[in-house]
């Protein structure tokens, strides 16, 4: 079985740091024709334009050619072909598969039947490891380091898979956490226990405004109405977790705001003009990090 990237746990701390190093190199020099002889399949069983474009850009910048589909609607999958058969077929055509699928665990299963590396571009609510790696890259690029930082994660901490994976990945780097969330969307107990077992300090807050000044990274997420059992609860909290430029007064000069995008209303437009806004650059970073992951899984990063 070739090495795949299905979950952030599949990469050791050393591998994570290696990917970030290589991504830095690709950011400096964006056009690297090192995969001119490769075909990369981007197979999206559910649409995600943002993620697909990022992977296709990364593949093209490495000189590879891209095949695939952007949703399963008009393919043989909609005619009932099994995931196994689709993966067997595509892995005979391509040298690497980027896959997004609505079912949880589908990417792990694909990596077991595929003869080529799989990159998980999201398997339902489960994992989205390339998002985590680009978050780490963005943190490192803005702070000059990963070690000893304080992160304030804000919004939907219960269902947000990006915050869960980032929390686990950051645990390698002695962080401190602030978790700012409404009562209904608090960080699940299992993740708090994960931190306690590793002696990683955290505190839980319900107000955003008073908890910005002492943080290095403000990681914002969407608070979605459908997550609330009581719509009134949503109405009560939605503005509490809305960040505006005036709230940034007195924050640390190095503080950067990250957001996995798309945003709805949790970051006001006037924040975009502040030196703390980093979310658009963060999305751009995704291309360099995905270039690094693709190149690494195809064994092309040792002599760069």
């Amino acid at each position: 079985m070739p090495k795949s990237l299905i979950s952030i746990h599949d990469f050791s701390k050393e591998e994570i740091l290696h990917i970030l190093e290589v991504a830095k190199d690709f950011e400096r020099d964006k056009c690297r024709n090192i995969l001119g002889d490769k075909v990369i399949a981007c197979i999206f069983f559910e649409p995600s334009t943002r993620t697909r474009l990022s992977f296709e850009t990364a593949s093209n910048r490495l000189g590879a050619r891209v095949i695939g589909f952007s949703d399963a609607g008009n393919t043989s999958i909609s005619k009932g072909e099994s995931l196994k058969d689709t993966i067997k077929m595509v892995s005979n055509y391509a040298d690497l598969i980027v896959m997004r699928h609505p079912l949880e665990g589908s990417a792990r299963y694909a990596s077991e039947v595929s003869s080529v590396p799989i990159i998980n571009a999201g398997d339902g609510a489960n994992q989205h490891p390339t998002q985590t790696l680009l978050d780490l890259y963005s943190i490192q690029q803005t702070q000059g380091r990963l070690d000893g930082l304080r992160l304030n994660m804000v919004g939907d901490l219960k269902y947000g898979r990006t915050v869960h994976s980032l929390l686990q990945a950051m645990s390698h780097f002695s962080p401190e956490f602030i978790f700012t969330a409404p009562e209904e969307l608090r960080m699940p107990k299992e993740y708090l226990e994960f931190l306690s077992e590793r002696n990683i300090p955290y505190r839980e807050e319900t107000e955003l405004s008073g908890n910005i000044k002492d943080t290095d990274i403000l990681y914002m997420t969407r608070v979605q109405q459908e997550r609330f059992t009581d719509p009134m609860e949503y109405e009560k909290v939605k503005d509490v977790y809305r960040l505006t430029a005036s709230m940034l007064e007195g924050c640390k000069p190095n503080m950067k705001i990250l957001h996995p995008l798309p945003r709805v209303s949790e970051i006001a437009d006037d924040v975009d003009e502040t030196p703390h806004a980093y979310y658009f650059k963060q999305a751009e970073n995704g291309v360099y990090v995905r270039m690094a992951i693709i190149a690494y899984l195809l064994g092309k990063t040792n002599n760069l």
Binding site: K84, H101, P102, L103, E104, G105, S106, Y109, D123, G124
Partner: peptide, 8 residues
């Protein structure tokens, strides 16, 4: 939503 409940 687990893949094992939808595929063989």
């Amino acid at each position: 939503m687990c893949v094992t409940n939808h595929q063989r």
